[in-house]
Simulated scan of single mutants.
Amino acid sequence: MGEGNISVTYWLAGGGCIGKIASFGILPVLREVAMPTRKINLTAEQDAFVEDIVRAGKYQDASEAIRDVLRGLQQRVQADDLQLELLRTQLKAGRDALDRGSFTEVNDADLDTALDGLSTTR
């Protein structure tokens, strides 16, 4: 560009350029941002569900609906990972307590009473 010209480029979060604006007249140069595509197989029931929610106006198209499903799956996987990490931490604390001798032995006859006591103290 020549001296005095300013160009600003706008980018999407995913990295795609959505346009440039020059100082001499605002002439946006918009281009479609390519998204990766995948072929997926759905059951007839799943396909009908996607069609129904798109037709009802809840999503603009099937791709938008499937992306929303994937976001939900990502959240569930993250929550599962956090729960697993918590269980591992609790397991380690229990093993450490055993190694230190910090535990109470309970005989079979008193087990139910001991377990009931644990549930009421939490």
Rank of each mutant, 00 (worst) to 15 (best):
R55Q: 04
I21S: 08
T104S: 04
E51P: 04
R76C: 08
I53T: 05
V33M: 10
K58F: 11
L87V: 14
G94R: 12
D108L: 08
S63D: 12
L91N: 13
Q75M: 15
V33N: 07
Y10T: 11
L111F: 01
W11K: 14
R38T: 13
I6Q: 05
T89L: 14
Q75R: 15
A48S: 06
E85I: 11
G117V: 00
L84M: 09
L98N: 09
R76D: 15
D108H: 07
V50D: 04
R122W: 03
G14C: 11
E32K: 05
Q75K: 14
K39A: 11
A44V: 08
D47N: 09
C17N: 07
E85T: 15
A65Y: 05
I18L: 08
R38K: 15
G72T: 11
S102T: 12
G72N: 10
R71Y: 14
E105W: 12
K39D: 13
V29A: 10
S63V: 05
D116A: 02
Y59M: 03
L118C: 01
E85Y: 08
A114I: 00
R31M: 06
V29C: 06
N107F: 14
G15R: 08
L111Y: 03
D116R: 06
R95H: 15
L87E: 13
V33T: 07
A97D: 02
T120F: 00
Q74S: 15
V77Q: 15
S119M: 06
I40W: 05
S23T: 02
Q90T: 01
E45R: 06
D52C: 04
G94I: 13
L82A: 15
Q60C: 12
S119R: 02
A62D: 06
A65F: 04
R31P: 03
A48W: 01
V29Q: 14
V77R: 15
T113H: 03
V54C: 01
L42T: 02
R31Q: 09
L82P: 10
L84D: 10
S63G: 09
G101F: 04
K92N: 12
V69K: 03
F24R: 11
L87W: 04
E45V: 04
Q46Y: 02
R122M: 01
I6F: 02
I18R: 10
A109D: 06
D112Q: 03
T113P: 01
M1T: 06
M1A: 07
R95Q: 11
K20S: 06
L82K: 15
D81Q: 15
L118D: 03
T104R: 10
L118Y: 01
S119Y: 05
K20M: 06
Y10G: 06
L12N: 13
P36C: 12
L70A: 12
L84G: 08
L115F: 00
L98D: 07
D108Q: 08
Q60A: 14
R31G: 10
